[in-house]
Amino acid sequence: MVDDKIKYSTAFTAGALLLRETEAFVAEIKDYDAFLDGSENIDFSVIPVNAESSKKRLKHEIEKRLFAINNGNLLNQFLTSDKSGKNTILFYGICKCYPIIRHFMLEGVLNKWKNLDFELEINDFSNFIYRKMDFHPELAKITDKTVYKCGQVVLKMLKDLGMLNKNKLQKIAINNAVLGNIISTGDSWFLDVILLSESEKQGI
């Protein structure tokens, strides 16, 4: 059961995993600890998109996700990992930054997986949001259009992660080194987010 006192934000629609953009951003960080405590600033110009307004918006979003990870070892590991490992770290950061996505994975997606229901569509996320509105007044003013847009972005995240293929759930490639680092932070819940079995958890 999740904590209903946690405030939900749906401000994650600036982008899905943002792999290319985050790679460019993290590569510019000279000292991870200094970046995480706010004493090292990365200029928005390093973001590989054309419009300055987009660079600024994406910098803000990437920083939020990296600050949520709050682990210099994981940021260093991000640059040296393969694409699957990088995407896993990015999705972990998203789940840390946005509890609404973490709870959707733990309450909605995991439940479907355990019941051998592998179909996942935008409506699954939309219905999750509507159920949560009774317990989270901060969601009350969200329009149906925004709910749908959020669902689109969440499914895009799962496709980029490799967990969703043609609206069918599937396991992602397991990177033990990355997952071991995540577990060391105390966030073992992430193993359920990525649908690991008990035997797979024991193997990490």
Rank of each mutant, 00 (worst) to 15 (best):
T185C: 10
M1V: 14
E119G: 00
N181E: 15
L17M: 06
T185R: 08
D3E: 11
Q152F: 11
T13G: 00
D192P: 08
D3P: 04
L169A: 06
I142T: 12
E61V: 07
F25R: 03
K112A: 08
Q170D: 02
L75Y: 07
T10S: 07
N181M: 15
G15P: 05
P137S: 13
A24S: 14
C95M: 07
I182K: 05
F12N: 04
E28W: 07
D134Y: 15
F44K: 11
F25L: 02
L139P: 06
G203L: 14
Y98Q: 01
V193I: 09
A27W: 01
V26S: 03
T80I: 14
K112T: 08
Y98T: 01
T146F: 12
K171G: 06
D4T: 14
T13I: 14
M157H: 01
L110I: 11
L158V: 05
I172Q: 06
F12E: 05
M1P: 12
T146C: 06
L116P: 00
K114N: 15
L139W: 10
T146I: 11
L110T: 09
Q77S: 13
L155P: 08
L164A: 05
T80S: 15
I182F: 05
T146K: 11
L120C: 02
Y130W: 13
D134M: 10
N167K: 13
M157I: 01
K56M: 12
K145M: 11
M163H: 05
S126I: 15
D192H: 08
L17W: 02
V193K: 04
Y92F: 15
L191K: 07
Q170M: 10
K30D: 12
K166Q: 13
E61S: 15
A16R: 00
D144G: 10
T13M: 12
E200K: 09
C97F: 01
L75C: 09
K96P: 01
I29C: 02
I94D: 05
E200D: 14
S9C: 05
G15W: 07
G93S: 01
L17D: 00
G180R: 07
I101T: 01
S184I: 07
G72I: 08
F135A: 10
F78T: 00
D31G: 04
G203P: 00
F190S: 00
N127T: 13
G72D: 06
V154S: 06
V193C: 11
N123L: 14
P99S: 03
F35E: 02
L196D: 09
H136G: 05
S53G: 10
I194M: 08
L66K: 00
I6F: 05
E52W: 09
N175F: 09
A34Q: 10
I122V: 14
